[in-house]
């Protein structure tokens, strides 16, 4: 429905008790002010948030899905990086 020259924006909302802004979706708007208004109208209708960020989608640099193997598989074999890998001695109690 949007015309091709209406830029795309990514919307981030910080909820009432959330600490960080979380990505909730995207929308079309002519500029930042209009994007913020549209984000309010589309993504906070049910009291979802107390703060909104909008970012031009073109400002995002994304990893290439084709490089998934090279990027993420090497981490899978290093289970010692998870704290659950280690046994905590009884005497330590709750950490």
């Amino acid at each position: 429905m949007a015309t091709p020259n209406t830029p795309l924006w990514e919307v981030f909302i910080r909820s009432r008790n959330g600490l960080a802004h979380k990505h909730v979706g995207s929308l079309h708007a002519s500029d930042a002010t209009m994007a913020l208004q549209a984000a309010r109208d589309i993504y906070t209708r049910r009291g979802e948030g107390l703060s909104i960020w909008v970012v031009p989608s073109t400002a995002i640099t994304a990893s290439d899905p084709a490089e998934k193997g090279m990027m993420f598989e090497p981490a899978e074999s290093k289970i010692y990086r998870h704290p659950t890998f280690y046994d905590v001695p009884e005497e330590v109690g709750h950490m």
């Binding site: 429905m1 209406t6 929308l27 079309h28 208004q37 549209a38 109208d41 589309i42 209708r45």
Partner: peptide, 12 residues
């Protein structure tokens, strides 16, 4: 409305 975003805004 001319675009989905404004459809929501006007309905709100």
């Amino acid at each position: 409305a001319p675009m989905l975003e404004e459809d929501m805004a006007l309905s709100n």
